[in-house]
Structures are given as structure tokens and as C-alpha cells.
């Protein structure tokens, strides 16, 4: 395995994961009323790769804000 092959393969993957993480973090910072503590979501987004940000986008926003 030549190292020259490694970079063009791995860099896009890491880049995509970084984009996902950053978008999720920015959205978390802007979110006024997240569904749970913000610091916890930040940890989940940063440390659970791929599914942390997805979980945040799916469950972290308080979609059911006005439910009684």
C-alpha cells in the first residue's frame, strides 16, 4: 500500500465528517431551546462520529415546543 494513495481517499471522508460536525455545532449554538442540555449535545456531536450530529438534527431541536 503506497502512502500516496492514502490521502486522496481519506481526506474527503474526514472533510465530510468535519463539515457535518461543524454544521451541527453552529446550529446548536444558535438553537435557543434545545431538547436537553447544550453541553451534552456538544459532547455527543463531537465524540459520536456521524450519528452524533444526525441524532442532534433529528432529536435535539425542540420540535414539539408547544405541546401541553
Amino acid at each position: 500500500m503506497e502512502m500516496s494513495m492514502l490521502w486522496p481517499i481519506i481526506v474527503p471522508l474526514v472533510g465530510l465528517e468535519l463539515v457535518l460536525m461543524i454544521v451541527a455545532l453552529v446550529s446548536l449554538v444558535k438553537e435557543e431551546n434545545p431538547n436537553g442540555p447544550k453541553w451534552l449535545w456538544a459532547l455527543v456531536i463531537i465524540f459520536v462520529s456521524i450519528f452524533g450530529p444526525v441524532a442532534y438534527f433529528a432529536f435535539g431541536k425542540r420540535q414539539e415546543r408547544d405541546r401541553r
Binding site: I9, I10, L13, L16, V19, L20, V23, I50, V54, F57
Partner: peptide
Amino acid sequence: RDKKLVWLPVVMCILAILQPISLYYMPQ
């Protein structure tokens, strides 16, 4: 606004390219 237009394609792309990459590196 929900950034779904961002995360949906990004997550799908990650999922899709993981398979060829991990198969390629399987021996390592």
C-alpha cells in the same frame, strides 16, 4: 433552515463511501 439540506446529503455520502474504503483497506 433546519440544515437538513446539508446534513442529509453529507451523511448519505459518508455512508456510501465508507463501504468501498473499508473493503479496500480490509487486509490492513
